[in-house]
Each structure stands twice: as C-alpha cells, then as structure tokens.
Design a binder for these strands. Sequence first.
RNA 1: GGAGGGGUGGGUGAGCGGACGAAACCGCCGGUCUUGAAAACCGGUGAGCCUAGUGCUCCGUGGGUUCGAAUCCCACCCCCUCCGCCA
Length: 423
Amino acid sequence: MLDIRKLREDPEGVLARLRRRDPDLDLSTLLSLEEERRGLLHRVEELRRQRKQGSQKVALLRAQGEEGKAQQLISSLKGVSEELKELEGRLSQLEGELEAELLKLPNLPHDSVPSGPKEEKLLLRAWGEPQKFDFPPKHHVELGRDLGLLDFQRAAKVAGARFPMYTGLGAMLELALVCWMFQLHVRQHGYIPVLPPILANRTSYLVSGQLPKFEDELYHCEKDDLFLNPTAESLLVNLHRDEVLAEEELPLRYVAYTPCFRREAGTYGEEQRGLIRLHQFNKVELFHFTTPERSYQDLEALVGHAERVLQELGLHYRVMLLTSQDLAQQSAKTVDIEVWLPGQGRYYEVSSCSNCEEYQARRGNIRFRPAGGGKPRFVHTLNGSGVATSRLFAAILEQNQTPAGTVVLPERLAELLGERELS
RNA sequence: GGAGGGGUGGGUGAGCGGACGAAACCGCCGGUCUUGAAAACCGGUGAGCCUAGUGCUCCGUGGGUUCGAAUCCCACCCCCUCCGCCA
C-alpha cells in the first residue's frame, strides 16, 4: 500500500512512477475520494469537539446542582449527536471506498529498475555454461517417466491435470532437496527455520498483496474462508503483523518450507508439460524483515543465498533484473534466477527475489523502533525462493542426463540420496 | 463441537458511565551518585491523523443505548483452561 500523503502531495510524481508499470493507470477516482474525505473529516471533527465539550459541561453543571441548565444543554446536544451520526456514517463509507482503491495500487518501482515490457529484462550475470550434449537431450518428462521418478498419469487420476506425483527415487530426491536447502539456509546463512500453516486467512493475503486483486489464483476453502498457500511469502510476512520490532533485532531472516498451491488459470503451451507449471509444488522460501537503510544491500545477499543452492548442485543458471512492467504488485525491485533446461532449450525461473520496501509493512502495520529511540518506522520486507523444487528437479534431470538415458547425480545429492545414478 | 475464563500502551496488568489516553510495575531514554559499572534515587516515556488546535481518533472487531462508553447491551473474531472427538 502506498502512503496516501505521498499521493496527495505529489500526485503527478507518483502517477509517473506508477505508469512505468502500467501505462493505463489512473489515480483520479482515488484523488477525488481523498479530497471529499478530508472535507467531511473536517466537519466531523468540529462536531465531535462540540459534543465532547458539551458533555463535559453537563457533568460540571450537575456537580454544581444546576439540573435545569444541564437538561437544556442535553437537548441541544441531541441535535449535534444526530447530525454527527449521519456524517460519520458517510465518512466511514468514504474511507472504505478509499481503502479499497488504495489496496489495488501496486508498489512504486525502484529507480534502478529499467522501464519497459517483460521481454526487456536485463541479464545481470550467468554462472556456468550450458552443457554440450552429443545427443539430443531429453525432456524431464521422458526422463522422469522412463526412470520411474514421476508419474503424471496417476497423479491426474488422483487430483487432475498438472499435479505432481513423485515416485521411487524421485520421491526420495524431492524430499532430500527440500531438506538439504532448508538446512543450507539455516546452518550456513543464519536463517530462522519455520514450518508455517499452509492455510491462511483473508487478512494475511491482504497484507502480502495477494488480495484483493488476485483472488482467482488462490484455492479457497469457502466454509472456513481460508486460502491455500500459494507462496510462503504470504505467510511469513504476517509473522510480525501489528508488531513493533526493535532495530537491534533486525534484520530478521526466516526460511520456510511449504507446498504451494496455485490455480494457474489461463496458462498455455509448453509450460503445460511436466514440472514447469503445476497446481502444487514445493518451495523453500527466504524472507527478511529489515531496515530501509540496508534493504537493497540485503536484497543482494538474498539473491546470493538462492544462487548458492544452484552453485552447490553445479547447475548452470543466469540472473535477470526484471523490468518495471514485469514486477509483482508488491515489489519495488525483483531479481530472478533462471536455471537452464537443456531438454527444452530455454531458461526457467527457479527463484524470484524482491524488495517490497514498505508496501507490505504498511498493509500489515509492521514497524521497528529506531536504535536511538524515536517514533516507530515501517520495516522493509524482502522475499525470495531458495528455491522452488519442481523446476530444480527438472533441471537436475535434464542437465545431468547421459546418452544412455540415465541421470548422474551431482556429488552433493549423491551423498544425500545415497545413490550416484538414477537408472 | 460443549462449558467456563479472558482480550487494555513496547511488556505484565489495574480501571467497569463524566478531567481516563488510561494507575502501578517492568522495559526504554535522560539526570544525580561513582574512577567506571551495577544498585539506589529523581525526571521523562503509547500510536495515528491534519484542519496544527486548551483539535480529533484509537482499550479485540462491528453494531446499539446515552448529552457522554475502556466501562452498559447485542453479534462476531481470537486466546487460555476443562470435557468430547481425532492423526
């Protein structure tokens, strides 16, 4: 959520920045609502003052035994009270409308984010190189099926299309990956481990920015009005909702493992095959609560922590800076890590690391008290996958395949799984 | 699911129709004392809003009663204890 004051004080400036994301964005409704609200608030406050002072006078008159004067005052205050009631009703309606508008606005992109459409994302760096195969590399769906690691047909029988079923060593590998990544971030990067609930209430998703705009993406349990977790970001940001943290305890860094559920309405093409885009996948998520002064530094660190996963596994990847039009609603700046899938000849995102600055903190009222004392300030929140396993799984199969159609595991995984080769 | 108890500032917790934004304690900040620190003592210390005022809002949330509500009434949410069910 943006600061309404900023909008009021510099509507053109804010609009210009928002239009880097969405050239059609319009603020006129919002600004006129705010104008109206302020006028009404002024009148309401004046009436409240009258009522308050009058009521105090009633008490005073009674104490002095002036019952007659008190009664007179009471009857004149009835009118004030009635008018106030009506105006307050209109005010709260206006405030509701304003809030709804404000909740729909996306974050302002950071100055370092290039303007432009999705396709113009910037290559920041690459690690390793695409393997050279002297045979046509297979798609992970073929590898997974032939090696008995994945069974999409039976998954469809149980749940429907685009749900995963890991079998045999595939199931073992998936679990080993989750567990190892979790440990890596806890033991080596100093994250606090968390296993959160994977159903959460409306408020939680409102704070993360998932609601109100993207309700269609979520699985909803109507009876309880709870939503299945689409990313642990939504859960972790709510850990400190309505809290005032001490600056000394920042940055707070959490790592969570959760399954993630997304309805993925309206996707298409090659993404529909295999592990690329599923209704359910596993993800290890990294989340920081930090100060405005250091949040961009922390974003670098966060990306580094996610990259470490791929480096340890010896997987070739590249790091991309997203452009303004490709940012998620809550993000001010996002860096993606994309892993190479030779079976498909393209890169896929396995981690998306974002600085949401105070966007979520404002929605969730998450603040910190500065070390030297003084007023609480909003924290900055950062999130990043560290990393999503299904695509990682696919990359491991595709990047390590042999001409014989087997997969030779990288050393780290061979140790964990107790198997050198999937055959 | 049933019965009871409870949600108040950074924390614990008192207040249960009228100078109550709210006692006390803890914490925090400043001072005195001390070579320094601790202790002790003194003082300060909730958050938000713009219209910047002897201004307004906020005591779980939303309604209601009243000239006036943290306080009374209704509904809902959450937490705790006990019982039931259950991996």
